[in-house]
């Protein structure tokens, strides 16, 4: 997290971490989430879904603070984030 100055309580306050999940088939490529994510986690993925839209991709995932803006601003209910302790889970379907 880029700070202007080092906050006095930086040790005490633990910045939350989030993991972003995308239901790619629902995405209609409006890019609301990519544009308005406060910490710029998302980019448009190169790939396309069945309808030819570029779903968001959490490239800059470590920046995610699980604020949930992407989840609520998405008109398609296609993206959401959940708290994440940073450990990489093994991917499962």
């Amino acid at each position: 997290m880029k700070y202007w100055r080092k906050p006095l309580d930086v040790e005490r306050i633990k910045v939350p971490r989030g993991k972003v999940y995308v239901i790619e088939e629902r995405c209609k490529g409006c890019n609301f989430c990519i544009e308005f994510c406060p910490v710029g986690v998302l980019v448009a993925s190169e790939g396309v879904n069945a309808k030819g839209y570029h779903p968001p991709y959490p490239q800059n995932e470590e920046a995610c603070t699980n604020c949930g803006l992407c989840e609520v601003i998405c008109p398609e209910f296609a993206i959401y984030s959940l708290p994440w302790d940073g450990r990489e889970e093994e991917p499962h379907e």
């Binding site: 993991k19 972003v20 999940y21 995308v22 239901i23 790619e24 088939e25 629902r26 209609k28 490529g29 409006c30 609301f32 993925s45 190169e46 790939g47 839209y53 779903p55 991709y57 959490p58 989840e71 008109p75 398609e76 209910f77 296609a78 959401y80 959940l82 889970e89 991917p91 499962h92 379907e93």
Partner: peptide, 30 residues
């Protein structure tokens, strides 16, 4: 598809109030 498979947990948090069997909905992109 995207560079790395994303782990998809079972449900979107707001799914319980959505008739998700009817999604994607009819509204236009944007």
């Amino acid at each position: 598809m995207s560079q790395r498979p994303t782990v998809v947990p079972p449900k979107h948090p707001r799914e319980s109030l959505l008739r998700e069997e009817r999604l994607p909905h009819i509204w236009c992109s944007g």
